[in-house]
């Protein structure tokens, strides 16, 4: 680890002014991803601003009837929070599908959104990587690319976003509250993470001098019809090859609204509102789910070691929709 200087911020204003004032400064909270990357020199901040003492750990109801997750609420405290378990079980399940109990006890909700890709080449400082070192090239495109993207990738980067929590937040259309030198703003989760394009070094649209203060959930939690389906190489403590977050609003067996977000397939949680709209007013059935799954993977492109993800995603979407709608998996043949 490269030496750095350290300060402890007392409030949001001083935290923002510290990160904007110091060149190469980074905020640290849970530290579970940042310190891991600092130990192998992938990240080399010159100054750390410890924000763990800020009063941002609470989870409380909003005036609109939603829920506001403090940026520093831990993943464990969020997943097991009574309001989250009862009203947003999709989020609770997604969080508990990720990492380990030890990591979830430390990792914060804001940090979960800001975690970096687990692309093997991003981690290996002896290889070229446009995300780690812009302009050096992408080693994954012609390398071992099993955990890489099939949607939204570019010739510069085929990394995926590793978070499970963010996939559920995408389906829940969460809003990210941030504060910077110019004041506060709110970013819809769909606009928070970026596609790699020709600037894969930028994971998100959060400015370097902004910090996340909260994650807002709307009152719509899809607590009756939801699923977080995660496919991975082992049953626990592994990143998703393909994951699917589904929230359905149903009247009898008719779907009023469908939300579907995919994880493990792109540089950000993947939504396709046009494909979701195919389900509006439709009966919940395998016949109606299949075209949605087809539309989701339309245009997908795999690489040498991950093309299996395209079919895996199609099948996972159908299964997740069947589970969320409580449709018998064995019905309707196929």
């Amino acid at each position: 680890m490269k030496p750095f200087t350290y300060t402890r911020a007392d409030d949001v204003t001083s935290a923002v002014s510290e990160v904007s004032r110091q060149e190469g400064a980074k905020v640290i909270a849970g530290g579970t991803n940042l310190l891991d990357l600092m130990k192998i020199d992938v990240m080399q901040p010159r100054h750390l601003v410890d924000i763990t003492r800020l009063a941002l750990t609470t989870i409380e109801k909003t005036a609109e009837g939603g829920l506001l997750l403090g940026a520093l609420a831990t993943n464990a405290d969020t997943a097991y929070h009574e309001q989250v378990e009862q009203r947003y079980p999709l989020l609770s399940h997604a969080i508990l599908a990720g990492a380990t109990a030890q990591l979830r006890n430390k990792a914060t909700d804001a940090g979960n959104l800001l975690q970096r890709t687990r692309c093997y080449y991003f981690y290996d400082t002896h290889t070229a990587c446009n995300k780690r070192e812009p302009g050096t090239g992408c080693s994954a495109i012609h390398g071992y690319n099993r955990n890489h993207a099939i949607l939204g990738h570019s010739e510069h980067c085929i990394a995926t976003h590793p978070s499970d929590m963010a996939v559920a937040l995408a389906a829940l259309e969460a809003r990210i509250h941030v504060t910077g030198p110019q004041g506060e703003r709110t970013i819809p989760i769909a606009d928070f993470h970026r596609l790699p394009g020709d600037t894969p070094e930028k994971d998100t649209n959060l400015a370097d001098d902004e910090i996340i203060t909260a994650i807002e959930l709307s009152p719509k939690g899809f607590a009756r019809h939801y699923t977080y389906l995660k496919n991975r190489d082992r049953a626990s403590y592994a990143f998703a090859l393909v994951s699917v977050a589904v929230g359905l609003d149903m009247e009898g067996d008719t779907i009023q609204e469908a939300r579907i977000a995919l994880g493990g397939v792109a540089h950000k949680p993947w939504r396709n509102p046009e494909a979701e709209a195919l389900l509006t007013g439709k009966k919940a059935s395998r016949e109606n789910f299949q075209p949605v799954a087809d539309a989701y993977v339309h245009g997908a492109k795999g690489f040498e070691h991950n093309s299996f993800k395209i079919e895996l995603a199609r099948r996972s979407i159908v299964r997740a929709l069947m589970q969320a709608a409580h449709v018998d998996q064995n019905s309707n043949g196929n």
């Binding site: 640290i28 310190l35 410890d50 464990a76 990591l103 006890n105 430390k106």
Partner: peptide, 12 residues
Amino acid sequence: KRINSCLTLAVM
């Protein structure tokens, strides 16, 4: 609470 002591700084 159980944590990984390797992934946190003592100073924090």
